[in-house]
Design a protein around this nucleic acid. Structure first.
Lengths: 141, 141
DNA sequence: CTTGACTCTGTAGTATGGTACAGGCTTGAT
DNA sequence: ATCAAGCCTGTACCATACTACAGAGTCAAG
């Protein structure tokens, strides 16, 4: 497969060229091979990786967390138990996020419905949405 | 109800004092009443609001978006249709996030399972997780 | 009525995640 | 051969979301 230039990759992944170089510096992308003249040569797979990064950022993951997610893979070089433990921790994080998002969605749905009914009652149901943080840490009182 | 000082609020909401002042400046909190000597006097309800903000940030919402979420309420002063439209837009955003998180969770579960099975096969299933952005509005599948 | 913890305003600095040049080399089409 | 478009490195700058003082006033226990 013929390699892509950084510009083509940026276009396909809908990110800036500078962003790609930034991610490379930050270790989110493998250092690409270079042409004789020093141009980066990217495999098409990097486009998918960039799309993953963009999406994960929208979901509230930091670049640090995304780097961790991307480094998780079944690899004979790395202790499998370790990978499993990390994956399971991420799964728990994600479940918490989903629960919170569902609560937020429910609150917004109530609000939207109240609007439709033209009844000025609900003061601000959104604040009630994420009451009492489900799960781990901060088990105050 | 007796008001809380900024320090008490910070402690209960598990955020920094400076963060509260910052949120006030940024319009995420109502400007509190002041004591004769100029101390801020907070109602306990602000603690809940701060917890909401913290959680929403973890879910990938920016302070700007959170400000919008918090401003959504059934209020005779504001056009109900407008509030409903904004709430519905946020609901769509949230649904997209949930879909993405479920995909990511699925990929991680596969990875975790592969680890348990000690089969070094899956190269990096995570990258496949968020393929083809389920894209705003267009519901494929 | 002192003392230490707390609060005030204002300004400045930090971390994260990019974004924008400047100055120069490479490539590809004419 | 020329020349725009694209790539290179390096540095500087930006927005967001805090965080940390400095210097001064306030409160409350002893």
């Amino acid at each position: 497969m013929k390699p892509l230039t950084i510009g083509k990759v940026a276009e396909r992944a809908a990110v800036g060229i500078e962003t790609i170089r930034f991610y490379e510096r930050e270790g989110l992308l493998d250092t690409p091979t270079r042409s004789a003249s020093g141009y980066r040569q990217f495999d098409v797979s990097v486009v998918k990786r960039l799309q993953f990064i963009s999406r994960a950022k929208e979901l509230g993951f930091t670049l640090k967390e995304i780097r961790e997610l991307l480094s998780l893979r079944v690899d004979s070089d790395i202790c499998c138990e370790d990978v499993k433990a990390k994956a399971d921790a991420k799964i728990a994080d994600i479940e918490n996020k989903i629960v919170s998002l569902r609560k937020m969605k429910k609150a917004l749905t109530q609000l939207s419905t109240a609007c439709g009914a033209s009844e000025a009652t609900a003061e601000c149901p959104i604040l009630e949405a994420l009451d009492g943080k489900q799960a781990r840490r901060t088990q105050r009182k």
